[in-house]
């Protein structure tokens, strides 16, 4: 197993000053994937960007785990709509002189 891209959860807990339960709850909610190797738990480093957003929402805006789930669903929808808007704007160029 390639450990290079894995970050031990306790390191993240210490860094962000959050409880381990924060990560296990996010995992249960399907918002992140915890990898267990032997007895240690890790997170893929690619997921750190999203995790950081979740931590900010939780700590700075007092959003609970359920709220984070809702926000992420809506952000995904916004992203999809923005991509669709860009594609439509590009198509519109066809009809503009």
């Amino acid at each position: 197993m390639n450990m290079e891209n894995l970050i031990p959860i306790p390191i993240l807990c210490a860094h962000y000053e959050v409880e381990m339960s924060f990560f296990t709850n996010l995992n249960e909610m399907g918002l992140l994937e915890i990898k267990t190797i032997e007895t240690s738990q890790y997170i893929d480093s690619d997921a750190v960007h999203e995790i950081e957003k979740m931590v900010h929402m939780h700590q700075e805006l007092d959003v609970n785990i359920e709220g984070i789930d809702i926000v992420f669903n809506l952000l995904q929808k916004i992203d999809m709509l923005q991509n669709e808007l860009t594609a439509l704007k590009n198509r519109l160029r066809l009809y503009e002189s």
Partner: peptide, 12 residues
């Protein structure tokens, strides 16, 4: 008033 946790991952 705002608590801003230090970034772990570098800035994008």
């Amino acid at each position: 008033g705002g608590r801003r946790s230090a970034q772990f991952k570098g800035q994008d």
